[in-house]
Nucleic acid binder design. Structure first.
Lengths: 143, 143
DNA sequence: AATAAAATTAAGTCATGACTAACTTTAGTT
DNA sequence: AACTAAAGTTAGTCATGACTTAATTTTATT
């Protein structure tokens, strides 16, 4: 009964990097630490791992960029977050709780299950989702 | 972003005890070990903890009985399992995957979110669910 | 009494994932 | 050039959860 993907925290870090990069020109370790409320060393170590895994690149200024692979995971996680949150809100869950629960659920879903949940979500919204469009159309460095 | 309830494994053990007690006269540690594929010591230690937490009692024969509190949690977890599995199947997820995912999801839902999911499930089935009835009507020692 | 089955204890391993303390590096300021 | 502040890194620690093996003990069965 192991979680579907290992390193839940990596997904969260990547998701955070994506979110930050969507509303700032550059993303540094310290920004992530501030966002998540973690210490600098925690983030530093996490970034080192993500670098080694080829999920991000870090330039001489400490500016973090998602690689293609990292972006894929970040967008995937963020998409799950949005979809699950919205579905739960549609079911009558309060926005706050929906967001909290989505944070946990998003890491334990099989691709198949998420695909079906997404189908349901899109069906309920006539295939229209500005929120997902924002994610899908986003490209880094296009500020 | 901590899981909603600590000791996910405890919930699984309690759920297993309930399932076993529903189709056997008595439940022993070894039955649980066989069911879950864990070693005897793992189960032994887990049972010790559940005993200390007041979730189960163990008689001189090593027969395990859920306390009121333990039964509450076991039924709650099992109910979540059933509801989530069914909802996912309704969404088009294969039975196998639905069951697998339910195992993970059932441990991370807030009460509020589960309540809304259950509402949805019952609504979709006109309030009729033989599977939930079985759980709700079950009493230990009524074999 | 002998054997087999069940349970327990003790000790160890592993994975995740955070923390503090101390240090280095870099950049901006005076 | 020297200082300071901000950012990043290294190394070591801690906590939790949850499983394992090895060895022993207890219990049951014949």
């Amino acid at each position: 009964m192991k979680a579907y993907e290992t390193h839940e925290s990596s997904e969260n870090y990547l998701e955070s990097i994506l979110m930050l990069s969507m509303d700032q020109k550059v993303v540094r370790s310290i920004d992530i630490a501030n966002m998540l409320g973690f210490s600098k060393p925690s983030v530093s170590v996490a970034m080192k791992r993500l670098r080694e895994e080829g999920m991000i690149t870090v330039d001489d200024n400490g500016y973090i960029t998602l690689t293609e692979e990292g972006m894929k995971i970040a967008k995937g996680t963020y998409e799950k977050h949005i979809v699950i949150t919205n579905v739960l809100v549609d079911l009558g869950v309060s926005a706050y709780t929906a967001g909290q629960d989505a944070c946990r659920i998003e890491h334990v879903l099989s691709p198949e299950t998420f695909a079906r949940i997404k189908d349901y979500y899109l069906k309920c919204h006539d295939g229209v989702s500005p929120e997902l469009d924002v994610i899908n159309n986003y490209e880094q460095n296009s500020h």
